[in-house]
């Protein structure tokens, strides 16, 4: 799961997609994850880091992660990962 390279994030939790012109604001957790994703940290590492630092169960985090990815897709912030099927 990779976030588009040119996405601009700010410490206030703002996200600007220069390709589409869309703006978003996120909560603190969203900012933390977006920053990590931008820095190329992979999903497993991000999740492990959250579990270490935050008061959340694995099950809850996995559930919310699915929703998070749907949100990013909906927002058009994810890099398309082409699967050629071979």
């Amino acid at each position: 799961m990779k976030i588009k390279k040119n996405i601009a994030t700010s410490e206030n939790g703002f996200v600007f997609n220069p390709a589409t012109g869309d703006s978003f604001s996120g909560n603190a957790m969203a900012s933390v994850i977006l920053l990590a994703m931008k820095n190329g940290v992979n999903t497993a590492e991000i999740k492990a880091d959250i579990l270490k630092k935050y008061d959340v169960s694995v099950a809850q985090l996995d559930r919310d992660w699915e929703d998070w990815i749907i949100q990013l897709k909906e927002a058009n912030l994810l890099e398309l990962e082409l699967n050629h099927g071979n």
């Binding site: 703006s23 978003f24 909560n27 957790m29 998070w68 949100q71 927002a75």
Partner: peptide, 14 residues
Amino acid sequence: EKLPYERPYIKRLT
């Protein structure tokens, strides 16, 4: 002590 968690959430600014 662990930090309070909230599920990640972004909102489109429209």
